[in-house]
Amino acid sequence: MAEELLAITVLWGFVFIYAVMATMDFGAGFWSMIYFNRPKIKATNVANRYLSPTWEVTNTFIVAIVVAVYSLFPTAAYTLGTVLLIPGSIILLLLAIRSAFLVFSNIAEEYRKPLTYISGLSGILIPGLLISVLPITHGDFVEFSDGRQSLDLAHLFTSPNEYAFIGFSISSTLFLSSLLLADYSKASEEMEAYTVYRRDAIMLGPVSIIMAFLIMFTLKREAFWIYENMIDDLPLLLLSLGLFVIGGLALFLPSINKKGVRGIPRLAVIAITLQYLTASYVYGKAHLPYIVYPEVTIASAFTDPSSFRAIFATYIAGFLILFPGFIYFWSLFMNDKRYLRQKQTKDPA
């Protein structure tokens, strides 16, 4: 059992990292579109400054998740592959359009506006569809009959729980990304952009928390088993809520290093990330031992033990090789004042 737990923890880790990075990524694309017509506040500019170097790295994580599922839990990959054919294909199509047009918008300046709209809009739909994988794994929408599995799309899209997840996903995407961009703008000393993103974060935080409550409320009716398991960890859920409050407060406290500016966005980003980490830990733990309820468990889906050990060894080797690369990347794009505070900026025409 220990190896399966280790494997699902690695997978959960990938999913969490991707979830955070993807919300930043898709959110930044969306904000870049929203503030496109207001070049003066530099909000689009800041979003693009974050997005341009990071999207490829973010995209690699989604491939890492897919590969982790089929290398760690091949039997689950069979079930998920079969039932996710339609939603998975739609996600892939949107992702292809989104990534390609994001790159095109950076290259073809004159057509930047329509290209940004295409990538921004297709991007914001992706998190809503991606998160649908979670309610699908709760089992209610999957039909198992004599060895065949299929997804009941009609049932899925009439379920309030599914819509609560979609709402949560999109509001969280916008919330987290505006928060990060607020921090990024402040580090870049783009104070107008900071004001705008701080305002967006303050508006969207409560929306995301209401959506989270809606998820719990609908889970109770539609997938009671997981609701029950989550409530067993009530103290952690309350901690998560507490972190949300701290994150919110951090946006109103006076800034430490800047006079007359409200908010410590770095603290808010950390608190909110921890809030999501805690909540997703509780959710992930409640989901165990099932990958797809009630047929596929981490034990039944687990790969061959010798394959697992070989893969796990590559995880360690890969981490050791990549870690310095990530640090260098971070120092060049998140922490280098020459990059953040570039004066000669490319304003969209």
Partner: peptide, 8 residues
């Protein structure tokens, strides 16, 4: 699975 994994 190894080549897929290392390819990542």
């Amino acid at each position: 699975a190894l080549p897929f994994q290392i390819e990542i």
